[in-house]
Design a binder for these strands. Structure first.
Lengths: 198, 198
DNA sequence: TTGTAAACTATACATTTGTTGAATTAACCA
DNA sequence: TGGTTAATTCAACAAATGTATAGTTTACAA
């Protein structure tokens, strides 16, 4: 593998090859589930030789992972509060962009891809929490534990929601989430709106 | 495939074949990760022809899934309260049985297997919650949503814990979990011990 | 005990995956 | 613009997966 994920000063050819492969995969996903797509097909449509593919990515999972990473960077530009409070809505907003509908579906019905997304989500959340901790917010539990807990919960919920064809609205899902999550987790001390008495 | 998962009146040969395949896989897992084990090897050690394997299971994931199912049936005999309140400890107790150590590890580093376990866990929890609901306990959120939320959270936490070589004790993990989980979820109304002020 | 249905074995095949080594092409930079 | 380097292509290979078909064995029950 020449350059793998990290491309310090990407050659024009490298950028083009990756772009073609990614677009090919996205286009194939519109008609077929991820598992039914072969590396060969991706390469044919991208007009890139199969050995070239393997010089960039270990397998199609890593191609997806690479693409998801880039999307998640864009996603990370949203405010922390929005990400925390309305994760399912954010998620859905992404899914509404036509280009991402089949992508989300693909991720959701492939455990390995779900795993990739889970990891990316947890890392993102962890850096956010670290930031808050530096600002002096007192967490009763290690932030790494919080990140894994919350990411797992949201991922589980989101996965179920997608798998069942979104039986309720994204707003409703976030509302459920707000009821299920302990306010102390993200806003320790200031939990005036604790729902215990509700 | 002759009989697949459901064996109404299992032939002696069927039972034997499956037992041999399962034991073979378990034994191989002690020396190699799941992904490094081939169907061929499982069959060689089990002294079962490869085509026979495929007549019982789609692939090695399904063989594992079948075995996990049986273990999870035994696990389900524990009390509801224990399962809910000390999931990580239960999990670990299982891992302490020598026969299950490598199994847990195998599940944890294969996303597809984690997914299988997640689904089994969620189903188990859902039936428990349904039971409680029938007894008149008022849930503020659909029990299916609770089940997915909690299963995801516990799975995320457990996975992280195993992946990082159990940096803290199982008791400590359950303690963290108790702090992170909103008491209202499982014990609505009776949340006298709400930790909001803590 | 014996017939039969089933479970199992055997052989052969098509696909996909991932790798290797050598030849070719094209981006870059001096 | 031309030389160099790195990316890409090409051909060939090994290993694993999964399937199809035909033949053999064996558990079970009549």
């Amino acid at each position: 593998m020449y350059t793998k994920e990290t491309a310090p000063k990407a050659d024009l050819r490298v950028k083009r090859t990756r772009k073609l492969l990614w677009e090919s995969l996205m286009s194939l996903l519109e008609s077929r589930p991820f598992d039914a797509i072969t590396v060969n097909e991706i390469c044919e449509r991208a007009m890139v030789h199969r050995t070239t593919f393997y010089k960039h990515f270990e397998d199609k999972i890593h191609l997806m992972s690479h693409g998801l990473q880039e999307i998640s960077l864009r996603y990370a530009e949203e405010s922390y509060e929005d990400r925390i409070r309305r994760p399912i809505q954010m998620f859905q907003k992404l899914g509404h962009l036509k280009q991402f509908r089949s992508l989300l579906q693909a991720v959701n019905d492939n455990p390995a891809l779900k795993d990739v997304m889970h990891r990316q989500g947890a890392e993102l959340l962890k850096t956010d929490l670290l930031e808050l901790q530096k600002e002096g917010r007192p967490f009763a539990v290690p932030i790494e534990v919080i990140a894994e807990f919350y990411t797992g919960a949201v991922a589980g919920l989101g996965s179920w929601w997608l798998l069942n064809d979104m039986p309720v609205s994204a707003e409703q899902m976030d509302e459920y989430l707000a009821r299920l999550i302990h306010p102390e987790i993200f806003f320790p001390g200031q939990a005036a709106d604790c729902r215990c008495e509700e």
